[in-house]
Amino acid sequence: MALTYKKLSKYPHSLRRLVGIELSQLNAILTSLTPIWSKHLRNSYDRPGRYYKHDLGSMVSLLLIYYRSYTTQEFVGYLFDLDKSNVCRIIKKLEPLLATILPIPDKRILTKEEVSNLIIDVTEQPIERPKQGQEAYYSGKKKQHTVKKEIRIDQDGTIVHVSATYPGRVHDFAIFKQEPPPPSDVPIWADAGYQGIEKLHKSACTPYKSSKKHPLCAEKKTYNQVLASQRVLVEHKIRSIKVFKIIGNRYRNKRKRYDLKFNIVAGLVNLQNGLSLLKRAA
């Protein structure tokens, strides 16, 4: 028997493991998305006679299960009794609509009133070997072809900024310099990949690096420990993002919609963190 939202909602614990969010959060998404979806159907340019076999709740569940498991669309089609072409079309239709209501990180310059502290880090995801420009995407650290994104979170654990997508060869600090600069008087907590950031941002903190000839003293070791205890929050957020295997596993899709997918996942993590859905006119 095919999966449906009605069946899944009877088992909240199982639904949480399948789609990655709580039933109450899924219901909130459906409440906000229903008028937008209705408007989309009224203005749709689909050919006459086109209809959707499942209700909106089942289709959103389908998309989230695909994000959560990142199995093939053909397999997801078997679960929902759909052809893989229908699965692809549903995902393609829902993604931009879902992005309008999720608390997705903003790409504008943040003000001091909005953030009092910033914790930054770069996450790296393996991709299929590109047909062209392979060298630019090869990461010497991961020993494979990857793409990178910088994530900035505030003191409450909210993802406030996600960078553009960069090839795996680009250094973490180079990504920071190409993104909108944070407020100059807001403290930044960064890892060793951001050595030299103090020249651009006086309130930035990075760990001390040791060597065989210059080991760290006890004071510097304590400083590094305190900094790591502050930075662990962003590591937890990256882990929450990678729970959705479409970001955690090797990315197989075309990268044309990668930014959209990543932002949706970041919005889902912010929703789990207690942020409210955005209100959009139907």
Rank of each mutant, 00 (worst) to 15 (best):
Y5F: 15
L63H: 06
I120A: 03
H13T: 15
H214P: 00
Y258I: 11
K143R: 12
Q144H: 08
E235I: 01
A28P: 00
I188W: 02
L41Q: 15
C205N: 14
Y45R: 05
K149E: 13
R47V: 10
E135T: 12
P187K: 00
D156M: 05
F173Y: 14
I175K: 02
A218Q: 07
L30A: 09
K221H: 06
G196D: 04
V269W: 06
D191K: 01
N27D: 15
V232A: 08
T72G: 10
S14K: 13
I175P: 01
Q272P: 10
T123R: 02
S163P: 04
P207K: 02
S9L: 07
L110C: 00
K209D: 11
E113Y: 01
P183I: 03
G157M: 11
K6F: 09
G248W: 07
A28S: 15
I65V: 15
G157C: 13
I188C: 09
Y251E: 06
V243N: 13
C205T: 06
T222F: 00
Y52G: 07
Y137W: 06
V226C: 08
N27H: 13
R108V: 09
P35C: 04
R239A: 13
Q125H: 11
K199P: 05
V76S: 07
Q73N: 07
L102V: 03
K199L: 12
L275R: 12
R239L: 05
Y137S: 10
F262P: 00
K39E: 15
T72I: 04
S211P: 09
L26N: 05
Y11E: 12
F176I: 06
L79D: 05
P215D: 10
I175T: 02
K221L: 11
S276W: 02
H214G: 00
I246Q: 11
R89W: 03
L216K: 05
K261V: 14
D81S: 10
A190H: 02
A228H: 03
L216S: 04
I241E: 02
L277Y: 02
T123A: 02
S69T: 15
K149W: 04
E124W: 10
H145L: 14
V232T: 15
R239Q: 10
R129V: 15
T158Q: 05
S24R: 11
Y11R: 10
K177S: 10
G168S: 09
A174F: 00
Q25S: 15
I104H: 05
R68D: 12
P215R: 00
D154Y: 02
L33E: 03
L118Q: 01
I65P: 13
I90A: 02
L98S: 06
Y208N: 07
F80H: 07
L278T: 12
L118C: 05
L200V: 06
S240T: 03
A282C: 12
D172I: 04
V162R: 01
A204D: 03
K148T: 10
F244C: 08
